[in-house]
């Protein structure tokens, strides 16, 4: 085992990272797109159903990820990482985690606001656990939408950082996640 493999993120972390990246992008695009659909569009019913089903899948991925994050420490920072880079990375990473969690929770609250369970891929139901507040779909909907746009801004920062390390600093930061 050489130094490089040790300093990589664990295989499970890498798989979960890219899987959630795929889901988060997919859900964002699906979410924006489905709201533009005409009432007679064949996807009008299906797109929200899929959005909810994939959202539930992402919740399970995020739970596993967060548990892993707490039990297996991330690889140490590279020696070339400057303190300000480390600090910004830390803020952005936790903003990403928090953003995703907030969006998932509010999404659940919208879908269950009328006290009906969420049907996942028409195979099983996620029950209603809580009726949080009056006008739940409106409040949760507002947070869901704006948290999603904010999250995308942080995703942009995250990607910009990764690309900067890869192309400008020419270090192994991005490669450790591949």
């Amino acid at each position: 085992m050489n130094i490089e493999t040790i300093s990589k993120w664990s295989l499970s972390s890498r798989v979960l990272h890219w899987l959630s990246a795929f889901f988060i992008f997919g859900l964002f695009i699906l979410g924006v797109w489905m709201r533009t659909l005409d009432y007679y569009n064949p996807w009008y019913q299906q797109a929200p159903d899929l959005h909810k089903s994939f959202g539930i899948l992402l919740i399970s991925i995020m739970i596993v990820r967060l548990v892993l994050r707490f039990f297996t420490p991330p690889p140490p920072h590279l020696d070339t990482h400057k303190p300000w880079e480390i600090n910004i990375a830390k803020v952005v990473h936790w903003a990403l985690y928090l953003g995703v969690i907030l969006i998932l929770i509010t999404g659940y609250l919208i879908a269950t606001s009328e006290n009906r369970p969420i049907e996942v891929f028409e195979t099983f139901n996620i029950p209603v656990l809580i009726q949080a507040f009056d006008e739940q779909e409106d409040i949760a909907g507002f947070i869901h939408e704006w948290a999603a746009y904010t999250l995308m801004a942080f995703v942009g920062l995250h990607m910009a950082g990764a690309l900067k390390h890869h192309f400008i600093d020419k270090d192994k930061t991005l490669k450790r996640m591949l």
């Binding site: 929200p48 919208i110 269950t112 606001s113 009328e114 409106d138």
Partner: peptide
């Protein structure tokens, strides 16, 4: 009686 529709109608 349907949260998402109500949100849309509002």
């Amino acid at each position: 009686n349907h949260g998402e529709r109500d949100k849309h109608l509002r």
